[in-house]
């Protein structure tokens, strides 16, 4: 593996029905780094992740993984989609589902080796899922399924793990748990993480780098480099303020002009 970035998104544009969803987006993810992809709903986070996975055709630019253009069959990426509804009628245990992350591409019935079974066991332990490892994966709760999906994505030892809005619809305590679990597991396995979210505060303690996405354009760097009034104002195309309060960050649009869109996560909540 080269020493360059794990993921290099190079001047990428994607248009749907004549509308630019991603407009000249560039950023890099370095090995073993935790990167947050932050932006309101509908700014193109899922499109960006799907482009990286090769599931979305890009109109301009290039995406390189480990320095090479992504081919469809490169199994160097792990992916946890935003919403998965696993059919509870399918007789597959959580343990078997994690194992499928290892060998779903393999033809035939071949029995899993002892090493592989140990790897599955270790992975289940890493995500604290031994307790429900022998339950049908479809009948697990949302949070339990998410752990299994993470284990499934990580077991093939990818160099980059992509997660689409894993923190949406979780209560604050669960958000904290998932974030620390991801941080720990990614560090243990030496995997870079690119995680999309519409809110950055819960990620501040673990995030090495931020990609801030709005209006189809992106700014990236460390949190201190990006979450600043001048950088974000350029990105939004109008003035925004960045407030720091009790270790939390708030992006506030000036409601001076009537046609200015206020970003969804900017509501100031005093706790």
């Amino acid at each position: 593996m080269s020493n360059g970035p794990v993921l290099d998104v190079d001047h990428v544009s994607v248009a749907f029905a004549g509308r630019e969803v991603l407009d000249d987006v560039s950023f890099q993810v370095q090995a073993s780094e935790f990167t947050g992809l932050i932006g309101s709903n509908g700014v193109g986070k899922t499109t960006l992740l799907r482009s990286v996975l090769g599931l979305q055709r890009i109109d301009r630019g290039e995406i390189r993984v480990n320095g090479a253009p992504l081919s469809r069959h490169a199994r160097v990426l792990g992916y946890v989609p935003q919403k998965v509804s696993l059919d509870p009628d399918v007789p597959v245990r959580a343990r078997d589902f994690v194992a499928l992350g290892l060998d779903a591409h393999r033809f035939g019935f071949s029995r899993r080796t002892k090493d592989e079974r140990q790897l599955v066991e270790q992975m289940l332990m890493d995500v604290d899922a031994e307790r429900f490892a022998d339950t049908r994966v479809g009948s697990l709760s949302g949070g339990e399924q998410q752990r299994i999906l993470i284990a499934h994505a990580l077991i093939s030892q990818p160099s980059l793990l992509l997660l689409d809005e894993p923190l949406a619809n979780l209560d604050p305590k669960s958000v904290e748990e998932v974030v620390s679990l991801l941080h720990r597991v990614a560090k243990d396995h030496g995997v870079a993480v690119l995680l999309s979210a519409h809110e950055m505060n819960s990620l501040l303690p673990v995030m090495d780098r931020i990609v801030y996405l709005t209006n189809g354009r992106a700014a990236s760097g460390t949190t201190d480099e990006v979450v600043r009034s001048d950088v974000l104002s350029t990105l939004y195309g109008h003035h925004v303020d960045v407030l720091k309060l009790h270790g939390r960050v708030f992006v506030v649009a000036q409601p001076s002009e009537s046609d200015v869109e206020i970003p969804e996560h900017s509501t100031l909540t005093i706790e």
């Binding site: 996975l53 199994r75 990426l77 992916y79 946890v80 499928l100 779903a104 994966v137 479809g138």
Partner: peptide, 17 residues
């Protein structure tokens, strides 16, 4: 195994090529 994974989670299967 392909049939099993694509029955359960087609999107994840697609991401694995």
């Amino acid at each position: 195994r392909r049939l099993l994974l694509t029955s359960l989670a087609p999107e994840i299967a697609a991401a694995q090529g």
